[in-house]
Computed example of a mutant assay.
Amino acid sequence: MKIEIIQTSTISSFVGVRASSLMSNLGNAVNQALHEVVRRSDEIGNIRNREVTYGITPPNYKGNDGLLDFYYCYEVEPLSNVPHGMVHLHLLPRVYSVTYYRGAASKLVTAYEFTSKWIAENGYEYDDVSYYFERYDEKTMRETDDVRNEITIYCPIKEKSFV
């Protein structure tokens, strides 16, 4: 796996469908959200790239035993009317670690473990005031557990404070 650090410079806008569930059923809820956002994509105005979707998560996953949210979205520019039953999100400029993962979707957790270790070893920590997101494109294989699957993972980070 490869990791790099980037600084975004603009506000990004997204429109999509929210999945809300306990972790034990989140996979099913996420799949339903994916199918709904793709099925209803013609209702979303100004999609930047119809071949690219995003899975966006608030920073409430770690140690959360309650309801979790996951947003399946398209990036839009500019933001226009949001279709009924959909949500819009804005991601502010910030620093991210970017992990390029290639492997079976069922092993995606290894990419997060690798990222966490890399962040700790390189003087960073998670900046848990912002959204995490994954980028899916034509190289992402959602329906099968293929080792050729590719996903790009963006984690908000900051330099570790030694106070």
Rank of each mutant, 00 (worst) to 15 (best):
T99S: 11
I153E: 03
E134H: 03
R148N: 15
D146N: 15
A111H: 03
F70W: 13
N149T: 11
L79P: 03
V82I: 15
E159M: 06
G103K: 06
A111R: 06
E143N: 13
C73I: 09
H88T: 14
P83M: 08
Y71I: 10
G123V: 01
E138L: 13
T99C: 14
I119N: 07
H90V: 05
D69G: 01
A104Q: 15
L79V: 03
I157Y: 06
Y132R: 03
R94F: 02
L68F: 07
H90C: 08
S116L: 07
P78D: 07
V98S: 09
S116I: 00
S116H: 12
K107F: 06
E159W: 00
I119V: 14
H90S: 13
V98K: 14
W118S: 10
K158H: 07
T110L: 13
I151Y: 03
T152L: 05
N81V: 11
R102C: 11
Y101G: 08
Y131K: 05
L92M: 13
M86R: 09
T140F: 12
D145P: 03
I151S: 01
Y132M: 08
D69W: 01
S116C: 04
R142Q: 11
T144R: 12
L67H: 02
K158F: 01
R142G: 11
Y96A: 08
D69P: 02
L68T: 02
I151T: 15
Y72G: 05
V82A: 05
F114N: 11
N122P: 08
A120Y: 05
N122D: 03
V109R: 12
S106I: 04
A120V: 05
R148P: 00
S97N: 00
E113A: 12
E77N: 15
S80L: 12
V76I: 09
Y101M: 07
N149E: 05
Y132H: 13
Y101T: 06
E150N: 00
P93E: 10
K107E: 14
D69R: 04
G85N: 11
R142P: 01
L67N: 09
A104Y: 02
R102A: 11
G123A: 04
E125D: 07
E138G: 02
Y124A: 03
R148W: 00
S80Y: 04
M141Q: 13
Y96F: 15
D128I: 08
P83L: 10
L91R: 02
S97T: 14
V129H: 14
S130F: 15
L68I: 14
E75L: 06
S116W: 07
F133C: 04
Y96I: 07
D137N: 15
K107I: 01
Y132L: 09
G123Y: 00
V95E: 13
P83S: 01
P156W: 05
V95C: 12
Y74L: 05
Y131V: 04
Y72E: 13
V82S: 03
L67Y: 12
G123S: 06
D137I: 06
Y96C: 07
V147R: 02
E77S: 15
Y72Q: 13
D69Y: 05
R135H: 01
I153N: 06
Y100E: 10
E150Q: 14
E159D: 06
L79E: 01
Y101L: 07
D128M: 11
E134S: 03
S130R: 03
E75R: 11
V98C: 09
F70L: 10
V87H: 12
T144G: 01
R135W: 01
H88Q: 14
V109F: 15
H84I: 09
L67G: 00
Y132V: 09
L68S: 04
D69M: 03
R142L: 15
